[in-house]
Amino acid sequence: MQIFTLFIRKLAVVTFWFFVWEATARIVANPIVIVGPVEAFGRLFELAATRDFWSNINYSLVRILFGFVLSLGAGVTLAILCSISKIFNTLITPFINVIKSIPVVSFALLAVMLLSPAILSIFIAFITVLPIIFFNTYNGIQNTDKNLLQMAKVFRVNLFKRIRHIYVPTVAPFVVSAAESGLGFAWKAAIAGEVISLASRASIGGAMQTARSFLMTADLYAWTITIVALSFLMEKAFFLLFGRIKKWQ
């Protein structure tokens, strides 16, 4: 019963905002400036019936996920190396701090000069997520209970067992939390990068750029709805796959 009430409440909130959106669009009455939800969703269904729509999603999704996975591997590896070696830490941490501060716009514009449009999304997803994964994993390693490590040392427990039973359960929830928020960042940043850098038209960002150039506002709205929906689905899928690890400890 409670779930039903919650569902009705959520539905009421969504309906209210859709109504506000539609009303605003009708008041403005200029489809180049704003289109209402009826037109936006209508256009989305039209686009979804085309092959290009799905190939654009496929193009961006595969690249962004690839960049994300690369970043996950690199972030965790660098955090481990920085925890082991002070010299490495001194060398790498400032570099990743700088990456963290550089806006996506700069990366996108710089990358477009260096890289082919085909790998631009991979690069932006990678570079955006790297600091998040790195710093969270590093903090996780530093947060490992010193008393447990001392206990393992006294009993001469080997490194493999220390990693499996102490480090992994401690650090994994940090990595999963970082990956969860990183995934959303990667998705948004990479598409923004695709738009800014006039990446391949085969990408979502490319399709948005084309829609903007030809003042196809309904298409822009339809793509935005698609991005939000995909981001939501990815977040849910990630939670289903790895959510349990967050409660490991």
Binding site: N147, L148, Q150, M151, V154, F155, R156, P169, W248, Q249
Partner: peptide, 16 residues
């Protein structure tokens, strides 16, 4: 020499 130890705190792997 190897030591076996009961620490003042339990120092257990809480998740195991």
């Amino acid at each position: 020499t190897k030591f076996s130890f009961v620490f003042q705190e339990d120092r257990l792997l809480e998740w195991e």
